[in-house]
């Protein structure tokens, strides 16, 4: 009997700790599928963030390093400079990449560091229990914005792909989502391109995946998907912001 669907080799055979309806599981799988398809698992070194994906080092079969909060691009830089012919990626959430690690992100991008960055934007801090993220929406209620995010107090969300697309070192800056089979396929294609760019030595490639956090948004998985479509996608338009051919 032909097997038509299986666990990617690059994904460790354990049950992940993510909540039902969380986007991390999907994106982990997509990254693993890409590692399989490009046949690079054995030469890939991943960097896990601090945040919900902190245990990513347990979920990928490739070598992994766990970075301090926000420092994944710096850690990845160190690894890549030691092993320029290996494939190095970071997997980071919005707090990690766009708040505490903004400097590391921007400068790795500015240097054109030849790494791949997978960025999960779900507009909230998950691991610590639902606080404001740098990408939280205007008016969004979180544990630390109980009256909603306001212009006067917290200011505005950061648009990472738009910002990074202004830097010469960036080869690819693309925003995708996971709210449909079609969207998931597009996300996978973007992730594959981001890895292929590195193999082709094109420079810094980032894929921002607009994702869900049903638990901390206080919604069911289905409601969360709807909330993403109605609230996040208008603020974070999908598309290719930079593609250095």
């Amino acid at each position: 009997m032909e097997q038509v669907f299986k666990r990617p080799h690059a994904l460790v055979d354990v049950s992940e700790h993510y909540c039902p309806g969380c986007g991390h599981g999907i994106v982990h799988r997509l990254v693993a599928e890409v590692l399989d398809e490009l046949d690079i698992e054995g030469k890939t070194i991943g960097v896990a963030p601090v945040g919900c994906a902190v245990f990513a080092y347990n979920y990928f079969e490739c070598d992994m390093q766990e970075a301090a909060h926000g420092r994944a691009p710096a850690v990845a830089t160190g690894i890549k400079r030691v092993h320029p012919d290996k494939v190095v990626f970071t997997y980071q959430g919005d707090g990690d990449l766009a708040a505490i690690g903004t400097a590391e992100t921007v400068h790795a991008a500015a240097r054109g560091e030849n790494i791949t960055v997978i960025f999960i934007n779900n507009a909230i801090y998950g691991m610590t229990g639902g606080q404001m993220a740098p990408t939280s929406l205007m008016g969004q209620v979180t544990q630390t914005t109980p009256y909603g995010r306001t212009e006067q107090n917290q200011g505005f969300p950061i648009h990472v792909c738009e910002m990074l697309s202004t830097l010469d070192g960036v080869a690819l800056a693309q925003r995708t989502t996971i709210n449909s089979v079609k969207a998931i396929k597009e996300t996978k294609a973007a992730i594959k391109k981001a890895f292929q760019n590195q193999i082709d030595k094109k420079g810094f490639s980032i894929v921002e995946v607009v994702s869900t956090c049903p638990t901390n948004w206080g919604k069911t998985p289905v409601e969360a998907m709807k909330w993403l479509e109605e609230n996040m996608l208008p603020v974070y338009p999908l598309g290719v912001y930079k593609d250095k051919e």
Binding site: V47, Q65, A67, A76, G78, H83, A103, E104
Partner: peptide, 16 residues
Amino acid sequence: ESEVAAINMVYGAAGA
């Protein structure tokens, strides 16, 4: 870009 980044690059390179 900072001492913070430098020491984390050291972490990555040492780990590698």
